[in-house]
Every structure is written in structure tokens, then in C-alpha cells.
Simulated assay, not measured.
Amino acid sequence: MEKIIDLSITGASEAGNVENKTKGTLEEIDGNIVIKYYEQFEGDSIRTENILTISGNIVTLEKKGGVNVIMRFESGKSHDAIYNTQAGPVSLLIKTISVYSKTHEKGVDLELIYKICFSPQDEAENKLNLKAVYN
């Protein structure tokens, strides 16, 4: 059954920190945790739907709308992604350093530490913390 949640999302990178608080939904489907929420990027007129699926130590983030991408995070592994924007597609390599998720009676905590590689010489380390709390 889908439950309404309060989300607190903090992202940290070399470009700076971003904090976002929003509402979303959380549902358990076939043993996986599926979190859905919307965001709107500054200067973008189209909202982006985010579908975050936690399946054990593998996390998949799918964005649909203003940007379109599927990113896979798996500790110690790298995965390619195509980040489609209104300005055109950008090829990325996602190098996941660690994935930590914990389900508890109040909701779910998630931490991702990863590098986004635009080219072999151009990579940026990122950290994402997400706290989903049931209403």
C-alpha cells in the first residue's frame, strides 16, 4: 500500500550543497522500496518525477520530465547513464563508492556516495542523503 511521506534530501558536491524538502509516496513492491516525488529545477518550466527504487544494495533513480535519466548505484561498481535535457543528451559514468539504506518504523534512510564522470579527466564526487518519514 502506498503511503504519504515527508522527504528531506541533502546533496553535497564540489559545486556546493543542495537541500530539498518535499512530500512523496513510499510503497513496497516485491520486496523493493519505491519512493516517488517531484522536483522542479530552477529556470525549468517542467516538473521532474523521481522514482527511487531500493533493492537491497542496489538503488535505481529514474527521472522523467524536465530531465530524463536512469541512474544505477551499486557499491564498488560503475554504470553508464544518458542524462537527457532540453539542451540535449549528456553521457555520464556513475562510479558508486557506497550505498547505505535502512528501513525502520518511521520510514527509510538512504545515503549514496558516488562520482559522476563526464570524461576520464573530469569527475565530481557527490553525496546524497535522503530521509523518508511516514506522515
Rank of each mutant, 00 (worst) to 15 (best):
L128K: 01
Q40P: 03
G107S: 11
G88A: 05
L128S: 02
Y100E: 14
V59E: 03
L112Y: 00
T48W: 03
N126F: 08
I29M: 07
N57S: 15
K115F: 06
I116L: 12
G16T: 11
Y38R: 12
K63H: 05
I94H: 02
L92P: 01
L110H: 01
T53M: 04
L93K: 12
N84V: 12
D6S: 15
K63Y: 02
E125P: 02
K102Q: 15
T22W: 06
K77G: 09
I97A: 05
V90N: 04
I97Y: 07
I33L: 13
G88P: 06
E28V: 15
D30H: 06
I29R: 14
S13N: 03
I116V: 15
E49K: 14
I94N: 01
T22Q: 09
G31T: 03
G76F: 04
G16H: 08
F73G: 01
Q121T: 12
A87M: 12
G107Y: 05
A12E: 12
K63M: 05
L61R: 04
S91N: 13
A132Y: 00
G65E: 07
K63D: 03
E105N: 15
S13I: 09
R47W: 07
G16M: 11
S101H: 11
S98Y: 08
T103D: 07
T48K: 06
A124D: 11
T60Q: 09
E14G: 10
T48A: 10
G88H: 08
I33W: 02
I94V: 11
L61P: 01
T48M: 06
C117W: 01
I4R: 10
Y83W: 02
Q121W: 09
G43V: 10
A81C: 07
I35E: 00
G66S: 09
N32Y: 02
T85A: 08
E42R: 10
N84F: 06
G31P: 05
T10M: 05
G24R: 02
G43I: 06
K64V: 11
L110Y: 03
N17K: 15
I33D: 08
I5F: 05
K95R: 15
R47T: 08
E49N: 09
